[in-house]
Amino acid sequence: MFEIIGERINGLFLDIREAIANKDPKPVRDWAVKQAQAGAYWLDVNTGPIASKEEQAEVMAWLVKTAQEAVELPCCIDTTNVLAMEEGLKVHKGKAMINSTTAEQAKMDALFPLAANYGAAIVALTMNEKGVPKSAEDRIALAMELVANADAYGIPMPDLYIDPLVLPVNVAQEHGPEVLEALRQVKLLANPAPKTTCGLSNISQKAPNRPLINRTFLAMAMVCGLDSAVMDACDDELVDTAATASIILNQSIYCDSYLKIFRQK
C-alpha cells in the first residue's frame, strides 16, 4: 500500500512556526487531523531552523506529542540534529520513522543503531559527502552501501526507505530519468526489497503548474516502485492520483469506492 507522508507539520510554514513560538498546540493538531483525514499514513514532523540544539530537541518532542495526541498516526521525525531525533523517538508512540541518514559512514553509524534500538523505520538518502550523484548507477551504488550497512545493523529491509533524491525538473531535468531508473533498481538490491520514498514536491520547485508536475511524477515514480512520498496530503488530486495508480498497479483490491478507501486507515 502506498504510504503518504504528510509534509505539513514543518516549521518552514508560517502557522507552524508561530505555533512553535507560542507553544500553541492548535495548528499542529489541526494539521495532524486534516492530513490524517486526507489519507496520510505518516506525519512528517520538522521544527524548521532553530539555533540551539537543545531547544530544537525540546520543540521536536513537543511537536511529536502534540501531533500524536490529535491522531493515531506515527510520525516521520525529520531533523539533522541527532539530539532532536532521539528526543522525538523517546516520546513517540508506536513505530516511528527516522528522516534521515545519508550514505556517509558517520551518519549511518549514528542513525542505524538508533533505528534498530527504537524499532523505527528510516529514510536513507542516496548521497554522501560528495553530494548527490547524477547517474542511476551511482545512486544505486550508494543505495547498496545503505542497504549493506542497514542489514549489518539488523534493520529489516522493509523498514529501510531509500530516497534517490528528486531534484527540480526546471533546473535538473537530466536527473529525472536517473531517479526513475534508480527506483526500479533499488528493488533488486535485496530480498525482501527495501522500500522507497522521496520528497515529492522537489520535482516542481519554482516551476509553473506545480500540482500537475507533482502528480504526473508521482504516477510515473509509482510505476517504477515508489512506495511512499513526503508530500502534500491535502492536495486532493495528488492523493487521487496515488490511489488510482495504486489500483492500477494491483496494490490493493479494486472496488468502486477506491478513492475513498485509499484515504481510510
Binding site: I253, Y254, C255, D256, S257, K260, I261
Partner: peptide
C-alpha cells in the same frame, strides 16, 4: 467477484 464483495461491505 472480490471487487463487488469489497464494495458491498463498504456500502
Amino acid at each position: 467477484d472480490i471487487n463487488l464483495c469489497k464494495q458491498l461491505n463498504i456500502l
